[in-house]
Nucleic acid binder design. Sequence first.
DNA 1: TATGAATGAGCATTCATTCAT
DNA 2: TATGAATGAATGCTCATTCAT
Lengths: 212, 212, 212, 212
Amino acid sequence: MEDWEEIFQTTDKDGQWTDKQKRIIKAAIETFAEKGFSASSTNEIAKKAGVAEGTIFRHYKTKKDLLIAIVAPVMSKLIAPFVIRDLNKVLDKKHDTFEAFLRAMVHNRKLFVERNLSILKILIQEIPFHPELKALFEQHVAKEPLEKVKNIILYFQEKGEIVPLPPYTVLRLAFSAVAGYIVTAHLFGTNTWDDEKEMERTIQFILKGLKP
Amino acid sequence: MEDWEEIFQTTDKDGQWTDKQKRIIKAAIETFAEKGFSASSTNEIAKKAGVAEGTIFRHYKTKKDLLIAIVAPVMSKLIAPFVIRDLNKVLDKKHDTFEAFLRAMVHNRKLFVERNLSILKILIQEIPFHPELKALFEQHVAKEPLEKVKNIILYFQEKGEIVPLPPYTVLRLAFSAVAGYIVTAHLFGTNTWDDEKEMERTIQFILKGLKP
Amino acid sequence: MEDWEEIFQTTDKDGQWTDKQKRIIKAAIETFAEKGFSASSTNEIAKKAGVAEGTIFRHYKTKKDLLIAIVAPVMSKLIAPFVIRDLNKVLDKKHDTFEAFLRAMVHNRKLFVERNLSILKILIQEIPFHPELKALFEQHVAKEPLEKVKNIILYFQEKGEIVPLPPYTVLRLAFSAVAGYIVTAHLFGTNTWDDEKEMERTIQFILKGLKP
Amino acid sequence: MEDWEEIFQTTDKDGQWTDKQKRIIKAAIETFAEKGFSASSTNEIAKKAGVAEGTIFRHYKTKKDLLIAIVAPVMSKLIAPFVIRDLNKVLDKKHDTFEAFLRAMVHNRKLFVERNLSILKILIQEIPFHPELKALFEQHVAKEPLEKVKNIILYFQEKGEIVPLPPYTVLRLAFSAVAGYIVTAHLFGTNTWDDEKEMERTIQFILKGLKP
DNA sequence: TATGAATGAGCATTCATTCAT
DNA sequence: TATGAATGAATGCTCATTCAT
């Protein structure tokens, strides 16, 4: 089950989500993920949600607003582990190693991907075509968090745990390997895929590759 | 300049491409890349190509046929370096090192990506939504070439040059790093990006990470 | 005035026919009758009906659905006089003669044709090209009613009023004469056509031709 | 085999029909008969005929011209038996009875229908929608021949063989019965239809019905 | 004479959006 | 607030016809 399914199960009487709104969001996520934003019709979404077509436009002025309403919350959560608290946690526990940090990250982000698969699919698909989404992404993901990760990497480089390359290069190399692992897990991860081992191999690869 | 631009510049009198066909393909590539397949209208493509809308449908029975006509040739070339000749070249030159092989690959594939950027964008965007494209991909890319790469990796593992992990795992790790490098180069590669150095760092990262 | 004009004049608030629906049906009947189904454009029908083109497709999923919606009700009424009640009426009144029965039929069916002229034109024109219409016709017209007519003819044959030919042959001969009368009346019935006399002559012709 | 098939088999070198023309006519007849004029595309006809689309328009300026070229010759032959020669033949042989005349007519016209089925289908379908066809029909069929038939009927009425109704009424009654016979033969004439007997019954019905 | 590429108006149908109820 | 009928512009696609070759 994905995050949004859980969120929408909790019927909050006084909350901001009415039952119909939930069903619209649910239907839109499913449809956008399956056919892409452009190829999804509001008519189809309305039918799947069991509401009138007009109801969608009462809550979201345009079809694109609906897309943004779906994608924006995930954007914020994309960088959740890099908010100040977590950063400090890492930096404070001076005994933490880069390996421990990497393991935590991989585990955490993999869980996040699994729990937000549909919306992430939509996000990745639609970002190139909607400047609004790109702006949101840069604002939420690319600014602050990147700076924080840079500091973490610098911290471990000072500790001599990883190779003294430019921090963004280190980030790119590590991120590529992790992303490749997660994507592969989702594309071919049905059979003959030993997830535990593959994750371990990926971590070892990064550690070796970044050893000073 | 991209490959297809070069291809379409050669005005071949008796060739299979008429002038109008070329202009249609060119306009379609540009439009699909810019807005995505679904959001591109045949009307717009026709106008951009300077032909009547009916002319598009004389050459390509449906809009999807046009997409496939654009994407299919790139699919074949995706795996070009893995055809038998190249494979043998590598395996025959027994003195070749894994490093040499890796360098050749990175250079070759980066060139390919640069020279087919628009169509690759379209391909990646549209594959999830068109079973025909997925089928073409599996047929051209996923079957034979994968087997060949596996053999190359086994060859270098036997030579003791790289770590004895499962060949597909090695492939994944190396491919992720290279893909990450190419994507980053294209997303942020305008300023403050020293391409030569970043490529070198990526190769060193893979070599270190895969050292036995 | 034709039946459908009367039907659509009654503005039923809670009925199933909205004002726009009526106007669409009316416009479609006129257009189909005048130019044939294939040569009628939905654009023209929409304009004649004073609605947007999209409105037609809200009520009738396809152009063919519109045709069927027009033609189907007439199909049911085609065989109205042969439903069980009427059949029994004839058979019960043992004193009824074949002549009385024939007169009733001719009068009744001529009225029906006159009151459904446009739609019958459409029906006859389009039946050869639409399997759906043919199926409807066989289902509503060709099955039960034919059997009932057969029984009526058998009844009069047993009474010795008409020649003992196979019932379907008797039906064919009588039907041809009546149909020929009605068609002629409508094709040339403007001037020099004494309808009363021609009907009488047709009836006498059938009676004489079928005398035992 | 139908008349036009025979006509087009004779490859006349110096005749007015080239091979391509024949194939166009053949393809058009088949297509028009199957789908109706409006629903037939010149593209489909060209393909079926194995010629280029342009070739059709070299021979027939418009699609409608092609229709007329097909239908017109049949129109002339529709009234063949009523040309002066035949008329005189009947009137001269004073010993001829109305029955002999009727039999000759039924046989002759049935053969004609059988040998021109496709084109007659097209003619009947399209006459209501093309004033040109209606004009041709009135010119060829409705004028002279009708007058001649009237004279023949008057002749037999004077001989006292048939009832002294208005000649056109007599024609209508006889024609309806014959037409009904021919149509029924073609619609249901596959099984349980004894053609010889039904023809005889029809003739007897007419003779009895028209007896003075 | 025959071709078939090219046309652009026209086609049935779908679309996101509006608005009276 | 929610509806769903209505809209008309836009869609992918087909059409009869033209014309350079």
